[in-house]
Amino acid sequence: MGAQRQERADAARNRRAVLQAAETLLAENGFDHVSLDKVAAAADVGKGTVFRRFGNRAGLMRALLEERAVMLSEGIVSGPPPLGPGVPPRERLLAFLDALADLATRNVALLAAHDRACAEDKFSDPIYLRWHRHITTLLAEARPDLDAEFVGHTLLSMFDADLVRHVMNDGGVARLTGSLRDVASAFLGAPR
């Protein structure tokens, strides 16, 4: 039993070290210079540890983004309104987009790396699927006449890291958040 606890503590320490190393390398050098070999060396763990835990760069970027997305996910399920349950779907959708914009603007380099790492399989990425499912559910409640699945993809496409960076450089966070709300509100307008 004691050996099992020690392994879990070591695994947790290694996971934190790998994620911190990946984040540091990403911030300093950009996505193209973040290899699992470099991450393992920077984290002072074996290359096999990184491969077993994360599989590939996409898995590593997904884990980094997931760390940031946990609080958002918890807020959706059980947080206070307007992000959490208890308010009309329109208010929840706008609150979710605000929260997602905040996450994106604070983590634009990570978002870009995640976009690139998961580019070939973006629509089956667990984080994307969770966010899309939430948006689609809210849209379907607010506007049953819409193609909620398509509109959900459309709204999430506005979180493309290059677009986020461009809008932030030409109007800041307020422009990004305001524009997202405007687009979502247009979709939520009167039924066709």
Rank of each mutant, 00 (worst) to 15 (best):
E23L: 09
D115F: 03
A12C: 08
S157I: 08
F123G: 03
V45H: 00
H153P: 07
D160W: 05
H33V: 04
A12F: 06
E23Y: 07
F31D: 07
L64I: 08
Q20M: 11
T136D: 12
P89S: 13
H166C: 09
P85M: 04
V18E: 11
L188R: 04
D115E: 11
N14H: 15
H134P: 00
F123I: 09
A9T: 11
P85A: 12
R53I: 05
V164N: 05
H166D: 15
L72F: 03
L188P: 05
V108W: 08
N107D: 05
A119T: 06
L103R: 05
R175W: 09
V108M: 03
Y128A: 07
P85V: 06
R13M: 08
L97R: 10
R53L: 08
I135F: 02
V18A: 12
T137Y: 07
L65M: 15
E23M: 04
D145R: 02
A21Q: 06
V183G: 01
A3W: 11
R16P: 05
V39A: 02
T137W: 05
A3R: 14
F54S: 04
F31E: 04
A142W: 07
A119R: 14
L146S: 02
V173Q: 13
A113K: 02
S179Y: 08
R143E: 03
P85T: 01
F150K: 15
P144E: 08
V151L: 01
H33C: 09
L155P: 03
L163N: 09
M158G: 13
T136E: 14
F159K: 11
P81H: 01
A27F: 00
P85Q: 04
N107Q: 04
L103N: 06
L25A: 10
M158P: 05
F159E: 10
D170V: 13
P81F: 09
E67Y: 08
A42R: 13
M61F: 06
A101G: 12
Y128T: 13
N14F: 13
R57A: 06
L83W: 01
L72S: 00
V151R: 05
A184I: 11
E141A: 12
A12D: 12
A63N: 09
A113I: 10
D162N: 00
G172R: 07
L97K: 07
R68C: 02
L19C: 10
D160V: 06
E74G: 14
G2M: 11
Y128S: 02
P88H: 12
A22Y: 00
R133L: 12
D98N: 10
E74R: 14
